[in-house]
Amino acid sequence: MTQRKGPIENHRAVPWAPTEFGLLETFSVMTDPEGTGYVVEGSCPTCGAHLKIDWHFGNPGYKGVTVSPDVVRPKAGPRTINCDCGHDHAGRPGSAYDDGCGASWKVMLP
């Protein structure tokens, strides 16, 4: 999963706080033009950062000898996104595993 930060003018420097928003309809989930994954785009509901996220297919933990990969088609349903805007947010603990404002939400994968 790769996140690309949006224009900085969208961003609000709110303090870091773990916040869950449930399913957000404001995010678009589109198939990648090259057919190699999905592109998710929208604004963080807490800090307002514009986020464009590339979801690719990848190897989760195979150590075997065959090299030709079998792509597992994902089931439709909600998927979780953490805000990873990359900006400093006051109060973010060192143990936080995200790089954003602490917000998380779900988008619907078609």
């Binding site: 979801w55 690719h56 190897n59 990969p69 079998d70």
Partner: peptide, 14 residues
Amino acid sequence: AGETNERILLTGED
């Protein structure tokens, strides 16, 4: 070592 060389969509749920 893993049975098959599977590639999954890299989201938390998958």
